[in-house]
Write a protein that binds this DNA or RNA. Structure first.
Lengths: 326, 326
DNA sequence: GCGAAACATCGAAGCGTTTCGATGAGGAAG
DNA sequence: CTTCCTCATCGAAACGCTTCGATGTTTCGC
């Protein structure tokens, strides 16, 4: 491994000069810069991250804690994790992965030992004990999602309440009056995941306001999807609109509905609400929410801010509507 | 942040004594140890990871590169990533996440800057350019999966060839003579992913040896699963055995088969081959392969070994059979 | 009761950076 | 032709730890 000393020797300059060439914090003569850069190049020099972090008290690493592996959820999680890793890289940060099972203890260790500059938490619950600890321990942090009370920590979240409302309003706008709601697995509701609770709440409110029927929410279970959909139509045969939380189930629902002889969107219109991954090109489904990339980018920005001891800030993303193909 | 100096002062000992208490590399008197430990406790001291890494040239961090986000694959990937993170933690290592899109360049940066001690790569192709670079650059590494030629780098992999054979043999053992194969998405084959190619090869070989029919492999596409299964039975109505690569599709396939009026395993026996996640308790399906945790643990062990400049070593896991519930 | 070995602890060097104050060379101003 | 700046570069300290050799103190064998 070559060090800054070797680079300096080779370029015939002082060590500090090399450092300034790299950081640009002081003016350097053109010829000197050239010599230093080519020495760096010839030696394949890469600055030692530990030395740098030790001296500058910044590691440019962010910790990311996943949510506890509720089975069906790890699916969507993978998409988020990579979106966050990409967003971090594009901002010069690296991401250290922390399993959720470790709670706040691991995050504390990482922060206190200066392995990471800040931490990011996914899958925030309406009442989340981790958040309180986070503030008490004064860990620089950003949340993906937000608890009910002001967390005293930066967070970013899709406005799921609005998204829930909007999804119903979309269906109503299409002339649908008899709606049903398919939400995340029951455990997710039971745990109190914000996105689940708020979306359902929003949908209910909008249905009441518009005076349309909204059948009680059914928790999705991939393996029993068909039964669940049957059940919905058994309870209300005239159901002509379906709100579906989470896009990864969208294709399955679509297929199952077709198997049941329902045309989408003619017989039943489907609105998917939440964070979506890819640009859905041709689809009979309407999406209400935001892209995963936007949420991920915001989260990383907040985490970086927190690093600089900035006051907590929150971002509530207004849901967008991506209409179904005609 | 408290440092080792503060701890030493508080305990009334030399800095080096504190260090030795922590590392246990030299004998320390009982009373001294007690004082040091309580000073550490009172101050909430956590050693600075950068300083430690700088001095000892070990970071206890491993890089993990995911595979390029072939859509359907990110699903299984999440499970693997967390399994690896857990395995790493239980061995005192942390995991830095690297998106696959960055190729080998990011891994090189991380290794050369001493941010990580070793790198782990997932989703190795039969001919994988990354592997060659890895060896040329002499990066300590472990692969999850293995290329065709000796990579000159440690790797761990399920013996997918054997697993493919075994899955057919299981079906044959159940008296099935007309088999079909459902494999990973076509892109995965096209890219040359080892697990896809080898499993199919093994299954073919076993079918030939046993003299049973094995219908050409169908690449799974979650959104068109029903069509694909229909197609299989259209081509060979007597099909009575199905080999399915990947467990995350298992429930869907099961459900779809039932929708089609097939009883499992009476009409059609299903064998799932690959790495599985949870202990499948009551299931009409037979699993052939290995648990994700075993693969993850082995990979981390190999990466740690590589850290110590150990000669490359490979682990080919013999597939296990978890028979279907009677 | 003396020398040697074992034990417990200390002090200081060094890991590879960043950053601050100092220094020398030119150039502008008087 | 001095004096004062500015600009480019240098030298050294410091970040927090680990580790090696040195030092003082017991303990043991004979």
């Amino acid at each position: 491994m070559s060090t800054i000393v070797k680079v300096a020797e080779r370029a015939g300059v002082a060590v500090s000069t090399v450092s300034y060439v790299l950081s640009g914090k002081r003016p350097i003569g053109a010829e000197t810069r050239r010599r230093v850069l080519s020495a760096i190049d010839e030696l394949g020099y890469v600055p030692n991250a530990s030395a740098r972090a030790l001296r500058s008290t910044r590691t440019n690493v962010l910790a990311l804690q996943g949510f506890s592996a509720l089975n069906d959820e790890s699916i969507g999680q993978g998409l988020f994790i990579f979106a966050i890793a990409d967003a971090a890289r594009s901002r010069g940060q690296d991401v250290l992965l922390v399993p959720a099972a470790d709670g706040i203890a691991e995050l504390t260790r990482l922060s206190r030992s200066s392995m990471v500059d800040a931490v990011m938490l996914m899958g925030i619950l309406v009442r989340d004990r981790r958040v309180e600890s986070l503030r008490r321990l004064r860990l620089p942090a950003a949340l993906l999602g937000h608890p009910e009370d002001d967390p005293g920590v930066s967070w970013i979240d899709l406005d799921f309440d609005a998204a829930g409302r909007l999804s119903v309003e979309e269906l109503v706008g299409m002339g649908r009056r008899s709606l049903a709601y398919v939400g995340p697995p029951a455990e997710v509701f039971a745990a109190g995941a914000g996105y689940a609770v708020r979306t359902w709440r929003g949908a209910q409110a909008a249905a009441a306001a518009a005076g349309v029927t909204l059948q009680a929410q059914v928790s999705i279970t991939t393996s029993a999807l068909r039964d669940q959909l049957e059940q919905i139509f058994a309870a209300a045969p005239r159901t002509d609109g379906l709100v579906l939380h989470f896009d990864f189930a969208a294709q399955q629902v679509l297929r199952t509905l077709r198997l049941m002889g329902k045309r989408v969107p003619d017989d039943v219109a489907v609105v998917v609400v939440g964070g979506w991954h890819h640009q859905q090109t041709e689809s009979p489904i309407t999406f209400v929410g935001s892209t995963i990339d936007k949420i991920a980018g915001g989260a990383v920005d907040l985490a970086i801010e927190a690093t600089a001891a900035a006051p907590p800030r929150s971002i509530l993303l207004a849901p967008e509507v991506r209409a179904s193909a005609p």
